[in-house]
Design a protein around this nucleic acid. Structure first.
Length: 371
RNA sequence: GGAGGAGUACCCAAGUGGCUAAAGGGGACGGACUGUAAAUCCGUUAGCUAAGCUUUCACUGGUUCAAAUCCAGUCUCCUCCA
């Protein structure tokens, strides 16, 4: 089996876990934050930089790579790892999120999803089998089942029908995938914000059986308390000896709250996206570095940070770069934000190890300015 | 000296009697961003005691119920001819 999860320790005050995720391209320490590199690149970063920031695994995307450059090209290039020069673990999303994000550009049927390309409007059809075929060609260590990420709010009937279909699709994904020594495949629990449907979905996914389970359909616009509530009752349903992945969360509070509820993995475009838009995460909260008030501020983005950007550059300089639309601005803020979350997860792992996660969380929240 | 053209908000620029505190860009300022249709998107950008009121389209005066828009004069700039 390509994917093995080693549970090292459980936190005494919460459901947090410390673990090691074994993959064909190395071991990932959990809980982990995974930077997103949708189009075979973590935007603005070289893979070497991503690695130097401490990233252990990155995400990429089936739908985007299928459209461009095409999965056969990547297969011929020796797979995604080789193609993008990243020799560490990769997880590919199935295209399921695009069923959500592409809105009226897609049509869902039992067979699969018809997409209108967001690039040129051309029609494409992705079924569970097709998604796995593409992901097999890409060769990521961890593949995701093709699912529908349901938007919020959604009616009970819609969620039930969609979730049941996601379950049928998961079976088809599992059946289609052959080489389990080379690549793992995770199931995705859906069920919207309905407890009963989450429970059913979790049970169904476990019955099908995967080396890891994700909780999908969260962080789609629902109030955060609702997300925490869903995590509260969904996470404990998942097997202890398998990794649990909360898809699409990446603010510090979401990460803390997920980990505390027993989540091992998370990914998010948040740090890289807001970085390119001129916002950074700091130990004292978010800071919009392109704001005028930093024009003459010669301090680093975060005085308590020892990332490359903070060690070498000032807010004033980085604001200037944004002001004149120089690409280095985005690069520096991206470096900082990724480092910030990677370091945060490192601290979280350390805190779990020392049984002081909740203390650490409280300290962090207070300083960051949460609540 | 002669002929023609132009002066609009921070900048460029549309508008040539009422629906114009004035289109559209840019800039500036602020906000959003959560399995990436994103180096994107949204909002504000004359002043105020902001419902409303007051002062604006080079300047001065005039015509009109009503003027950025019409008329007269003045100033400034541009092009061409001497």
């Amino acid at each position: 089996m390509a994917i093995k999860f080693e549970l090292i320790k459980e936190d005494k005050d919460s459901k947090a876990r410390l673990g090691k995720l074994h993959t064909p391209h190395g071991i990932v320490e959990t809980p982990i934050f995974m930077p997103v590199g949708t189009r075979a690149t973590v935007k603005a970063m070289t893979p070497e930089e991503v690695k130097d920031l401490g990233a252990q695994i990155i995400l990429s995307n089936t739908y985007h790579l299928y459209l461009r450059p095409g999965y056969e090209l990547i297969k011929d290039a020796g797979g995604l790892h080789k193609f993008m020069n990243w020799d560490y673990p990769i997880l590919t999303d199935s295209g399921g999120f695009q069923v959500f994000s592409l809105g009226n550009l897609r049509k869902i049927t039992e067979e699969g999803v018809e997409f209108r390309s967001h690039i040129d409007g051309s029609k494409h059809f992705i079924s569970p089998e097709k998604s796995i075929e593409i992901q097999n060609a890409l060769g990521a260590d961890i593949m995701m089942c093709f699912d529908e990420c349901i938007s919020y709010p959604a009616t009970y009937d819609y969620v039930r029908n969609s979730t049941e279909r996601t379950t049928r699709w998961a079976k088809r994904c599992k059946e289609y995938h052959k080489d389990w020594d080379k690549q793992g495949l995770f199931g995705i629990v859906q069920g919207g914000m309905y407890k009963e449907l989450r429970e059913q979905s979790a049970k169904d996914m476990i019955d099908i059986g995967f080396p890891g389970y994700a909780i999908g359909g969260l962080s789609v616009g629902e109030p955060k308390e609702l997300m925490y509530e869903v995590l509260d009752y969904t996470t404990p349903l998942l097997p202890k000896n398998k990794p649990r992945y909360n898809m699409g969360v990446g603010t510090p509070d979401y990460l803390f709250e997920s980990v505390i509820r027993g989540i091992d993995m998370a990914d998010c475009v948040f740090p890289t996206r807001i970085a390119r838009n001129g916002t950074v995460l700091t130990s004292h909260g978010r800071l919009v570095v392109r704001n005028a008030k930093y024009a003459k501020d010669l301090s680093p983005l975060d005085p308590e940070c020892d990332c490359y950007a903070c060690k070498n550059y000032t807010r004033s300089y980085i604001r200037h770069l944004f002001n004149v639309n120089e690409i280095l601005g985005s690069r520096l803020t991206t470096i900082h934000n990724l480092y910030f979350l990677i370091k945060l997860m490192e601290n979280i792992r350390e805190a779990i190890k020392e049984d002081r996660l909740l203390e650490y969380k409280n300290e962090f929240y207070e300083k960051y300015g949460y609540k």
